[in-house]
Structure formats: structure tokens, C-alpha cells
């Protein structure tokens, strides 16, 4: 009883920050933008780790339209859905995601050379 009394008045919630972060752009949940070489000078861009709430297909549609490239959403057994785009679209994708407010800049990781 007395412990309860002690605990109630503290307005400070030690988990507030963590919760806020989680609800934000997903704490530590980076969006990985990778590139992969194909044969010749072709390449493939993959976007992994977007939040599940987003409709991948809609994002993909806009990406395709924006960059004039084809692409697809791949279902990966471990990583969930991954967007694939043709060509090296890493810069484009990250700019797009930031501008559309889908991901914050800190949460995008661009991999590859």
C-alpha cells in the first residue's frame, strides 16, 4: 500500500522515451537501401525495413513512376516485404522517402559502394 502511494505521484515515466521512439519512425529500425550488381552494368536497388503499416504496393507505384523504372515487391521469408527497383536508385529512393515523410533521414541507411 505504502509503496503504491510512493509510486503514484512520480510523474516521470522512465519508459516514456522508449515508447515514444517506438511509436516514431521505429527506434533503430533502419530502412536499408542496398544495391546489387547484376550482369553487365545493370544493377538492382532494394529497399528493406519500411514500416509494415505502409502499403508497399502504393509506394512502389510512386517510385516506379518517379524514377521511370520497373520494380516489384518481393516477399522474403525472413525480412518480410522488400521493394526491388531496377537500376541504381539509391539516392533517388532515399530522397523520395525523406520527402514523402515516410522515413526520417537518420533512419535510412544506404549500403553499397
Amino acid at each position: 500500500m505504502s509503496e503504491l502511494d510512493v509510486q503514484i505521484p512520480t510523474a516521470f515515466d522512465p519508459f516514456a522515451e522508449a515508447n515514444a521512439d517506438d511509436s516514431g519512425a521505429g527506434a533503430k529500425e533502419y530502412v536499408h537501401v542496398r544495391i546489387q550488381q547484376r550482369n553487365g552494368r545493370k544493377s538492382l536497388t532494394t529497399v528493406q525495413g519500411l514500416k509494415k503499416e505502409f502499403s508497399y504496393n502504393k509506394i512502389l507505384k510512386d517510385l516506379k513512376k518517379e524514377f521511370c523504372c520497373n520494380g516489384t515487391v518481393v516477399q522474403d521469408p525472413e525480412l518480410g516485404q522488400v521493394i526491388q527497383l531496377q537500376g541504381d536508385q539509391r539516392k533517388n529512393v532515399s530522397n523520395f522517402l525523406i520527402q514523402a515523410g515516410i522515413v526520417k533521414k537518420e533512419h535510412i541507411k544506404i549500403h553499397g559502394f
Binding site: 536499408h32 546489387q36 532494394t46 528493406q48 522488400v82 526491388q84 549500403h111
Partner: peptide, 8 residues
Amino acid sequence: AGFVARVG
């Protein structure tokens, strides 16, 4: 840092 869903 994780791996790519590499299909393509």
C-alpha cells in the same frame, strides 16, 4: 547489417 533479399 542484415542481408539483402537477393533474388533478382
